[in-house]
């Protein structure tokens, strides 16, 4: 396990440093005082009950929600101060959504091509070649010509992962990627994610798949009512958590 500390000053090889992050919707403090770092090659799982602020944290990191306090550093540089660099930052930090969010007006292939052309400035030929490579990797090459409404949830999620991979992100954020899937489709998405872990991809995963979190994570973060309650190796979190709340949560789900 590469790193268990969440020391925010140590940004030597951290891709992301989250410092005292806070998000408030009106008077509702959804996350508060969250500090953590994500290092290259790490797979960090965030677990916790619904409403703990896991998804909000992930959405803040991708700036789909604007944090109301604290800071987010990408390779040591704050991304909150400069709105102009938001797009290029987002291209390097991929996001996979619970609801897939494939573009409904485009085929699977076009979904993977459009970002490469518009954001990375690749030629169509180059973009299609990259897209086909990643679609093949997630087992969706066969469905390149299908529209999102013509394929299953699991297929959509695999295509969405391919779309993110096409942008060559440095880290991918997974926001409950299997929660909207029928049980028999969860496996195909998890196996794609497992292959990404094997390939050394840096990942931050909000998930309810405890088996998966335990198996692939280098670190597991347990969140409760907006704060990081405990952060440790999967073994510690799942077998001998130090905090009472973590213990209660783990025993309620296992």
């Amino acid at each position: 396990m590469s790193n268990n500390n969440i020391n925010t000053n140590n940004s030597s090889n951290a891709i992301l440093d989250i410092i005292n992050l806070e998000k408030r919707f009106g008077n509702n403090l959804v996350i508060r005082d969250i500090s953590m770092s994500v290092f290259e090659g790490e797979v960090v799982s965030i677990i916790g009950s619904s409403g703990a602020g896991k998804s909000t944290l992930l959405r803040c990191i991708n700036l789909l929600e604007e944090p109301t306090g604290g800071d987010i550093l990408f390779h040591g540089k704050s991304i909150l101060t400069d709105r102009k660099s938001v797009s290029s930052y987002r291209a390097k930090v991929g996001m996979v959504f619970q609801q897939f969010n494939l573009f409904n007006n485009m085929t699977v292939l076009q979904n993977c091509v459009v970002g490469q052309m518009k954001v990375l400035g690749r030629s169509r030929a180059e973009a299609e070649e990259t897209a086909k490579m990643y679609l093949d990797r997630v087992g969706m090459y066969a469905f390149a010509d299908a529209l999102p409404r013509q394929i299953s949830g699991g297929q959509k999620q695999r295509a969405a992962i391919a779309r993110t991979l096409c942008m060559n992100p440095e880290v991918i954020l997974f926001d409950e990627p299997t929660s909207a899937l029928d049980p028999e489709m969860v496996g195909e998405v998890l196996s794609v994610m497992r292959s990404l872990v094997k390939g050394g991809m840096t990942m931050l995963v909000v998930t309810h798949e405890m088996g998966f979190a335990r198996e692939v994570s280098s670190r597991v973060i347990f969140m409760d009512s907006g704060i990081i309650e405990e952060s440790d190796t999967p073994d510690v979190i799942f077998t001998s958590p130090k905090k009472e709340r973590t213990r209660a949560f783990i025993s309620s789900i296992l």
């Binding site: 991708n62 789909l64 797009s87 290029s88 930052y89 987002r90 291209a91 390097k92 991929g94 996001m95 959504f97 609801q99 897939f100 969010n101 494939l102 573009f103 409904n104 459009v114 970002g115 518009k118 954001v119 990375l120 969405a160 779309r163 993110t164 942008m167």
Partner: peptide, 14 residues
């Protein structure tokens, strides 16, 4: 669906 905009923003589109 707002997810469509979010999906597009998340891959770096303006």
């Amino acid at each position: 669906d707002p997810g469509q905009m979010e999906g597009a923003l998340s891959i770096g589109m303006t």
